[in-house]
Design a protein around this nucleic acid. Sequence first.
RNA 1: AGGCACGUAGCUCAGGGGGAGAGCACUACCCUGACACGGUAGGGGUCGUGGGUUCAAAUCCCACCGUGCCUACCA
Length: 889
Amino acid sequence: MNDEIISKSYEPKEVENKWYGFWEKNGFFRAEPVSDKPPFCIVIPPPNVTGSLHMGHALNDTLQDILCRYKRMKGFNVLWQPGTDHAGIATQNVVERDLSAKGTDRHAVGRERLVELVWEWRKKYGGLILNQLKKLGCSCDWSRERFTMDEGLSRAVKEVFVRLYDDGLIYRGDYIINWCPRCRTALADLEVEYEDRDSFLYHIRYFIEGSDSYVVVATTRPETMIGDTAVAVNPKDERYTDLKGKKVILPLVNRHIPVIFDRYVSMEFGTGALKVTPAHDANDFKIGNTHNLERIKVIDEDGRMNDLAGPYKGMDRFECREKIVDDLKKGGFIEKIEPYANAVGHCYRCKTMIEPLLSKQWFVKVGPLAKNAIEAVKNKRTRIYPSTWEGVFFEWMTNIRDWCVSRQIWWGHRIPAWYCKKCGGINVAKDTPIQCRFCGSDELVQETDVLDTWFSSALWPFSTLGWPDLTDELKTFYPTSVLITGFDILFFWVARMMMMGIYFMGDVPFKDVYIHALVRDAEGKKMSKSKGNVIDPLDVMEQFGTDAFRFTLAAMAAQGRDIKLSTDKILGYRHFVNKIWNAARFILMNLNQRDRDQDDSRIKDGQNHYTLPDRWILTRLSDVSGQVSEAIDTYRFNDAAGISYQFIWHEFCDWYLEMAKEALYGEDTAVRDVTANVLQQVFGAILQLLHPIMPFVTEEIWHKLPETEGSIMQSSFPEPSDFLHDEESLREMDLLTGVITCIRNIRGEMNIPPSSKVKIAIDVHDPEQREVLEQNVPHIKNLAKVDEITIGSGIPKPDASATAVVDRISVHVLLRGLLDFEEEKKRLNREIKKIEKKIDAGRKKLSNPGFLNNAPSHVVDEVRNKTDLLSAKLKKLNQHLGLFEGIDA
RNA sequence: AGGCACGUAGCUCAGGGGGAGAGCACUACCCUGACACGGUAGGGGUCGUGGGUUCAAAUCCCACCGUGCCUACCA
């Protein structure tokens, strides 16, 4: 017996705090390294240590938690691998900001101390986002938490680097890279964000050597001209054919540079003549390579002009631009300046304008790796859901460029390479070498650069499982089951995990990739701090409860469409949680009333006492259990939520609970106990169906329900075969609810207040239908507010009655003194008109030989039956209407 | 410039070749002993436009219009 009194409305706060600790303490989130159960594994997209939970995380992690909880209930050995990412640039920036607030900087404190400070920062604040995940209810195996800078993961990083280097897939070289002058580091192509800027296109005259004529080049970056080493034109461009073999004189600098011919140059753009600065432009760099041009670097790592810039030395690049334009004007070199909009690259971390720079960096040769990743997706070893993303994946992977992995910061995995001071040889090794492998010298200095953070997160699916050791975890859980992520890191992360996983593990890192939506604001705009439109998930959880929030996210997570989130929607699902809570309240009140010791035998042969509503709700539950499973299995989270919602609110609560009252309050104890038992069984299953989406409220109620054991987390997910399945009950229930609904409809339309009961007469010919109605008279009485019912075959329409037709049954509602004849005529006419329209459509089809010959027979039958039924209904309605003719109210 | 997605009820969106759906909002009546975070009933849509395929199109194909996103070396 449970004599707790449940409050009238659900208060999430206390409940949520209670259960998370309970689950964690009992080790319910723990995965088994070795198990007979089938494995299921998700690695969490590791959030940045510096991060705090935003809507993107909330959606991402809710979906993962739904899958993990569901799979556990389905009997899988589930590992949800949690952890965080060291986020090199972002994290170092945070600590550097602290330093600058104290009036110092990283150079003053030195590398070693800075790294120490970052570790200290991480120890203090790094757990924030993980605690927020716990608030969300995430059932990660926290005993296995990993950090990309952990010793184990660092070992994996070294192993990978060395092997790739030995295999010729990592090289070091002078290339043009994206440089952030503020972070003072190189960035990968992906880490550059392009933004449209209003700028100018400067047309500059380059005079031809030994001539008064000139070539006009167009550029957006005049300050780089000091580093120009050629002017390029298209070989087909007839305007410039006479420039073959000529040189031009660089204005202001007076350096003589060649005119070269390259198909890359567009004849349509600008003047068709392009100034080439191999050291400061990625495309110019390429042209420079094909034509063996000199690379003159005039801008330094801090974004200032260097020694080679002569009079402009020391100037900031933007300041220099103004000065140079000024000087060009004075010297008469400017042909014209026109406004021009172009896309300019910015650092994704600090938004500083990127400087393409010639620099010595480490690269991963991605071509061969990408090829394997493409193969894996092509032959479905990894499936991408929704599949539209496959195209995007292929597109990017086939056009991928080598990946610059070195970063000139201090926080990260230091590249395991040592340069020999004596012979200049590069020693790449897992362990610090004692002497140079080329000359034997012991004068070795380690590379100061660290690796791109994504380099270590690319190893996440196997490094977290213990690789390079061949652990039980690795054997059990690799390849992982599914990766859940947003498309924004499809390339940053997913593609790189694919490449690394296949190369080092010989198999894909995950069997499925599910790409979910982006969470936007109510207007569909991306949430951002600067726009001030962010909704903080923690606020939402505080205000509406975590379960309502999670349910909202699941309900809106339709594939292929972004989520426009507003608090209105969450409020709606909060009402749903409350509805469930109150259903529980009702059920507990009634279960408590029965004598549990005596009813067991009766319940065992309960099927004999099942009422129509009992059979119906069990059948529906059986169907719904299958549908929800299928939805989750195919990542249709919105369907899982929608099907549950519809079933619980509009079938279980609206119909079953209302009808159960008849049995629960009735005299027949056998029926009462059986219904109580069905109620308990169905509601228990409902909680289980909902648990993956709403873990807290379901656990809370589970513990209040009698005859439940332990945590709902560890119970089994409902299977269709767990419940009675009786197709007949669906048809019977349709009939019953149809009759009740049409009486309610008449009452509503006639404005009969709920307090006044009506008498009805039902004219039904079919004996089976008649039996169903006769057996369920009490439900009709209760739910349609009826006090007297006459059921029979061929019953004439009583005077002063309103009539509705359901199936082939006429339902007359007696309204002596209440019936407005004109209103009723109008109502009937409206109904008749609707039906006539449908009948017309049906007849038209049936008279079309094309339809009869080509449509499948079941479709033809269906249309014929429907039309017949509607015709019968129409006939009856017309008869009833006829009885009103000549009567004036 | 190219690619992809999306245009369905006032709003937010499901659906995806054979009877137009949900939630919210709206209207009317109800505090009926689980729930007013509730109940019952109702109104509201030529499924962006124009073609095509089909016996049958909101659904498949093409074009166009509109919206959003991604990619790109046009300096």
